[in-house]
Computed example of a mutant assay.
Amino acid sequence: MRKTGRRPGTSTTRQEIVAAAAASFSFHGYDGTSMRQVAADAGVDPALVRRFFGGMEQLFSAVVAEVFQPDRAIVTLLDGPRGTLGRRLLGYVLSLLGDVDAPGPLLGIIRSAATNEHAAAQVREFLAADFLVKLIRTLGMDHPELRATLTASQLVGLIIARYAVRAEPLVAAGPDQLADWVAPTLQRYLTGRAPSPQPPSR
């Protein structure tokens, strides 16, 4: 019989708490998730969840980092021709989402960010500081923050339209077809030449 409540705080326990939180964010959203419920789902005492993570914001950040795994992702994305980075990035994000009829925890993260300002701020900070900006700076490109924000806006918009709103043409399109349409835009944001400043109008 499974014991609940006072499991020792091991690294495996931490992973199980993060997995339980990811499932809860996906199913209930940020506002519908509680530390107590996550603890119950992971089979641990709520005090252990607070000891590992402190509060809900830190727990959500841990889930975001676990889903994206930014350091590993950057290494993987840079392993290939620079001119196809946009296609690799889109493929990576689609792989995190999984099947359109049974998407993974990334959709729960995006939904939480769309409905809760704390979650939105954490996702923005993560994308800006820990993932896309690092990727773009590694490439040595100018305007890394703007490029990262534009890239994130394209990805988040696609995720919401395909997996949350379920716009039929996007649901019906396969990953390769989506890449044919979307990857060139991502590529331009990531490595394209910055627009020349327009002269002031007279």
Rank of each mutant, 00 (worst) to 15 (best):
G5L: 14
Q58E: 15
V123S: 01
Q177A: 14
P8S: 13
L59P: 11
A183P: 05
D99C: 02
G104R: 04
F52R: 15
L155R: 00
L89A: 07
D130G: 06
S26P: 09
D79G: 02
E125F: 03
P195A: 13
A42C: 04
V64M: 05
A120P: 08
E16R: 15
A39C: 12
T12N: 12
L107F: 03
L78S: 12
L96A: 01
Q154L: 15
F126P: 01
T115L: 00
D79H: 05
A129M: 10
L190D: 10
F126N: 05
G83K: 05
K3W: 13
G5E: 13
T76R: 11
G192I: 07
R147M: 07
V133G: 11
Q177I: 06
R147S: 07
A42P: 07
R124P: 02
M141Q: 09
T149F: 06
V38C: 13
A62P: 08
Q37E: 14
L127D: 01
E117G: 13
R147A: 08
S24H: 06
S95K: 10
P195H: 10
T12G: 15
A129E: 15
D79F: 01
D31P: 03
L150R: 04
L78G: 12
T4N: 12
Y30R: 02
P103Y: 11
T191N: 05
L77Q: 06
L89G: 12
V63M: 03
R6Q: 09
M141V: 07
D31F: 02
L135T: 04
D99L: 03
Q58K: 15
F27N: 03
P200W: 05
L85E: 00
R124E: 13
L96F: 06
P195V: 08
T191H: 03
S11C: 10
A120Q: 14
A42I: 04
L90W: 02
E145T: 11
T33F: 03
Q187K: 07
S24D: 14
D101I: 02
T191D: 12
T10H: 14
